[in-house]
């Protein structure tokens, strides 16, 4: 089977995706499927509320181990609200920049200390 469906509601058993710990469970499943070169459909059906803390753990961290191209080609999201999609897009852009420039945060601290 080349396609895998991951239903967030069924993974965490809750319509509120708020805690990073729950995001971690989704991350583990996504990582496993993507490592096996599967095409993954991630469903946000019945999810009422999403925090960026959850999305950072569930999806943002994928950019550490997978390239942008791999994720574009193999991961698809469905049944997400527009609010949720806005949050997810922001999490994705943040993750790309975080892993591309790992020294950026330290530099921002140094800049304050030099002021």
């Amino acid at each position: 089977m080349d396609n895998v469906n991951i239903n967030i509601y069924s993974v965490i058993g809750n319509s509120f995706c708020v805690e990073a710990e729950d995001g971690e469970k989704v991350f583990e499943l996504l990582s496993k499927a993507l490592k096996e070169k599967k095409k993954v459909v991630l469903s946000f059906g019945n999810i009422e509320l999403l925090t960026t803390a959850f999305l950072n753990s569930a999806v943002g961290k994928l950019y550490k181990n997978f390239t942008e191209e791999e994720l574009k080609d193999n991961l698809k999201v469905v049944e997400i609200t527009n609010n949720g999609a806005i949050s997810l897009k922001r999490v994705v852009e943040t993750a790309k920049s975080f892993y591309k420039n790992p020294d950026a945060l330290r530099e921002s601290i140094n800049k304050i200390l030099e002021e």
Partner: peptide
């Protein structure tokens, strides 16, 4: 520093969106 977008102290995990948003 922490209320700026993308500023986080999480180890090896992106973040820092909550307060900025």
């Amino acid at each position: 520093w922490a209320v700026q977008d993308r500023h986080t102290t999480k180890k090896d995990t992106p973040g820092g969106i909550g307060l900025a948003r």
